[in-house]
Design a protein around this nucleic acid. Sequence first.
RNA 1: CAGGGUGUAGCUCAGCUUGGUAGAGCGUCUGGUUUGGGACCAGAAGGUCGCAGGUUCAAGUCCUGUCUCCCUGACCA
Length: 616
Amino acid sequence: MGDMSTIKTNIQASRPKYLSPTRGCVQLWSQTMIPTTREAPGDAQTPSHIFLTRAGYIRRVGAGIYNYLPLAWRSLKKISAIVRDEMDQAGASEMLMPALMPVELYSGTKRDVDYGDLLFTLEDRHGRKAALGPTHEEVITDLMCSSLNSYKQFPLNLYQIQTKFRDEFRPRAGLLRCREFIMKDAYSFHLDLEGDAGLNTTYDKMYQAYTNIFTRCGLDFSAVEAEAGPIGGSASHEFMVNCESGEDTILVCPETGYAANVEKAEIGPRDWSFDVTSDVEITMHHTPGMPGIEGVADHLGVTAAGMLKSIVMRTTEDTPRWVVAVVRGDHEVNEAKVRDAVGTSVELAPEAEAQAAGFSIGYVSPRATETIESILVVDPDTLHDANWATGADEKDHHVTGFNWARDMSTSIAADKVKVADIRNAHAGDPSPRAKGVLLVERKGIEVGHIFKLGTKYSDAMGLNVLDKNQKKQSVIMGCYGIGVSRTLSACVEMSNDDNGIIWPASIAPYHAQIIVIKPKEEGVLEEANKLASELAEQGIDVLIDDRDERPGPKFKDADLVGLPVRFIISPKTIEANSVEFKARLDAGKAQMIDRNDAIQSALDSLATAQNRRIAD
RNA sequence: CAGGGUGUAGCUCAGCUUGGUAGAGCGUCUGGUUUGGGACCAGAAGGUCGCAGGUUCAAGUCCUGUCUCCCUGACCA
């Protein structure tokens, strides 16, 4: 007896995490709800939407609102279990906040305005306004105001897994963008940035926890730098499932692994010089009603890449200063990069005020800064050529043959110009981390986002405590989100073939499917149950397709549902003391294997299914 | 929100131009024949044609309004 339990404990200790730590579950197809369909609904476009619907995981209730049927719910529970496990290990505590909340909570941070129509609001019978939570910064900060009162309580990291509501402008692609969705959101609280109790330590722990979570989910993903918030630096990372059909674009350095969202990606050093000479004379052209780059380029017979685009911005200081940002005509100015170059936050200048200051909006050139007091910021790509087309600083006029050295000698000499990376990066730009290496573009689906919030919410809502020196300090916060339901669909989006879904072992609703051929014949169903029981003993969840159907539809449905391993039991296999076996990953038909090898084949195959994407 | 499309049986769709008894395939149910990659035969159930109003002897079809859902755009887990 004692020996038995010791052995059992050892087996379980060595059992991979994608298997059930206890006995696996065994369920009959005929006794659950798996409404597969031959045809996709007309409104489904993306693979995850089509297959999750066809394979009987989800059904649409309204725009961006879905039923999670038993299969989907099993997968979602498995994802949630992984999330909980890793969050708990990283020192976070789970709790649950309400989805319904008084709207006044949001007016404190002005997010009722910032969020705008994205916030679902409703009225109760007394005419009081309420909101359905899109995230919970306000609720938890409010809670902390009354519960957090000593520096000794830090650091603190709380999370929940809960349904969120966002009145999206356009819900789409099944579970990928919903109005009601399941999210894990965590919030951490600190008094310092550095040190064991500091935000940065917790942030790094969350980064590692997220890496563990998505690895355990069997996803091919990248952690990428995202646009930083109020703190600056690399204070924000997005976790992207790599997938061609993703709507986010990221840029990757193939050499160093540096990866960033396009809006954030830095561009490596580029050669530049103001002293490029040219014989071409500067010439004025009449270009009536052509403020846009494309029209003018056409009219002047140049390409957009041969033009300079000068965007008038201003700082958001108390006494704003003008900023003229110059990039090549085919590039886009990146506001955050201009902010970093200027050293203070900037915004696009309101047209009327810029006009009043003397800027001919739509026809501005770098030369405007010679007469109007302003900061000139220039992208290096505008500085290795000498013959530019650009605005003439006069309504309805452009010039060709502009030459920095010749036509702006005073400003340049006076060192009034800043040369900096101020444009959006593109594939083919130099990597910021490795010399001579070019950035490569990839598509992804954002499933997680970690963020250093700083004191934005604590300041807005008065969350502060006394520190060791009895000084009042604003609490520093971080927040960490995972789209649980989106993770499910992102996985399908990433991993499918013409016949259906291909799950990794860890988040498949069941690990294995047993197809029973001729279940009504004597002993067949019994043999299936016996095999299922043996598999369950190993922590494998089993779905037995016991329906009295012909084999064809059962095979098709099995492909659709996409469980990693499949057994087929029939009078034939029983007679031969064998069983048919097929991994979902393998092409072709099932192979006859010895009945005694069944369990080992399943275990091996599950390991392959789980690890293949990570190996890639 | 802007632009484009859509709504007829549980699902996929035809019928609308040219108004006249509500259709097909799949699925479901019954009986029979079948049983290894979405079988066959016979039968059955199932729709106030998104909703409201109008034109007409007569509207799924024409007109007006309204709603739904989908696709393309800025935002986001």
